[in-house]
Amino acid sequence: MFLLIRISQQLINGLSIGSIYALIAIGYSLIYSILMFSNFAHSSFLLMGAYTGFYILILLSSSFPLSLLIAMLGSGILAVLIEKIAYKPIRDRGNPTLYFIIASMGISIFFENFIICTIGPRFRSYPRIMQTTFVELGKLNISVMDIYAAVVAIAFLLMLSYLIEKTKVGIAIRAASFDLEVVGLMGVNTNMLISIVFLIAGILAGLAGEFLGVKYTVYPQLGYITNKAYIAAVFGGLGNLKGAVLGSILLGLLEALITGFLSSAMRDIFVFCLLILVLLIKPSGLMGIQKQDKV
């Protein structure tokens, strides 16, 4: 019985962090599915959300849902701006994918240090919103903030699923993930489509950023969590949205269970070894499809 409670609590812990990973991993996968590069500037979108939400709550004393909305918009706009300023010129010149990756890494480093230099390196605490209140289910403890974050994350993932599966924009995104050039030839404004993809990725990262800020604290290195989400996206199959969610949930659960039943010191070793193993057996990830390059 005691073991069952411990397992259940660790599963809750894993699902909680996994749902945050999912919001970030989907952004990685969306961008990868269309532009075929890993956008390491994703951490900047997350930071934008965390800091925007923080200052909206502190300076305007606004409600949490309003600050969440503004944080998401802020991150979405930043994502679109970065795409227009940094990636579009590379795309227009037909430069190789490596250029995108280098540019994205540069943006990530710049943005983190820009925050350190302007706002400062200090850890900042969000106003207390449901922060340390928890629901007791028998011997299990679930944070109210975690429930709220999970519900909002699921709601947004369902909305995104509807957008991708049932709308014209979604069909265009899915088509572009097969061949962006052909989609352009068929009359779709590919620049607009890419902007929409970045907007969605930014909005989801902003959402994750504010939740992370509220649950923990805001600091310039908060964006490092996107590294784990990237691993989750690769784990599930980079470019596959369902795979990104599955990979994130599995990664969250794995981390919690390894820490809880083996050792916290061994957690990252196990996770990375498992990732290597998955990539050796199935290089495209759990749900990724092996693509053959057409010559």
């Binding site: 005691f2 411990r6 609590q9 919690a256 957690r267």
Partner: peptide
Amino acid sequence: IETYNDGESDFRAQLTKIKG
């Protein structure tokens, strides 16, 4: 005895184990 890394944010897995 549990460990964590500098800059880490989520400690619930370690704390659940400790609680046991």
